[in-house]
Amino acid sequence: MTNDMMQVLMSTVVLSGPLILAALGGLFSERSGVINIALEGKMLGAACTAVFIGAQTGSPLLSLIGALGAAVIIGLIHAVLTQVYNVDHIISGMGLNASILGATTLFAKTLPQLQTDEAAAIFPSSFFWTMAFVLAGAAALYIARTRGGLHLLAVGNDPDKSRQMGLNPVKIRFKSLAVAGLLCGLSGALIASTSGNFVPNMTDGRGYIALAALILGGWRAIPALLACLLFGFFHALELMLQGQPILGVDLPPELWQSLPYAAALIALALFAGHNKAPAGLGRP
């Protein structure tokens, strides 16, 4: 039993890694006032690019750079759509997610680099989840203690008043979405690093779970990290319990697989009501 417990705890840390990185990406985006359901798309795009470049060049460094680049580009497209062309933030995010899912699925079926059985050259997962914990602390400090962090909070809460105080909300949001891209890039590369291969839709809705964790954490770095650990724990529990009979009854695997998502839903319903979203979220 203790062995099982240890294993669940270990997997919790490992499984929450992608969630933490993506949630931090969401933190930068949403704190600056841009609703970001495109976390999922950025992660998927980054995972695909990481595997492709890793397989093509054999260089984990280039693979990482490619993953970050892809996610930053997607982030900047979201910025252009929402900030320059005033597209509704949700619609822009949905559009990006759908396009990227389509494109990466197509690539997976057509590009030979994505079809080999050999694992592509990507940094080991431990590198990424160490980054996840370090960056969560760094993000919390950045927002609470720096000029850049203060500007981020200000434009996210009231872009008009921020403008009056001499800030440039659009510029700050572009920067924030680039940072969100970097963080989602890390998250996507981490997901790709676990197997070294790309499978269509391999992010599996974890971008949305990360968003739920961000909301549950009240748009704050450390509480969001804890929420990610909670969801990671349910994911680990699912993996361990799947296939085991409970009180003599065999539950279908689909029921187990829904556990992390159900947990996210219930946690949001129970606890997120009091959390205050940045007041300028979604405002031009």
Binding site: T146, L150, L153, A154, S162, G166, L167
Partner: peptide, 20 residues
């Protein structure tokens, strides 16, 4: 901006240094 602290409002746009 009501969501920021009084100090943050005081400094906003005129912070003395990058590290506050």
């Amino acid at each position: 901006i009501p969501e920021l602290t009084c100090l943050q409002n005081l400094m906003l746009g005129a912070e003395p240094e990058a590290w506050i």
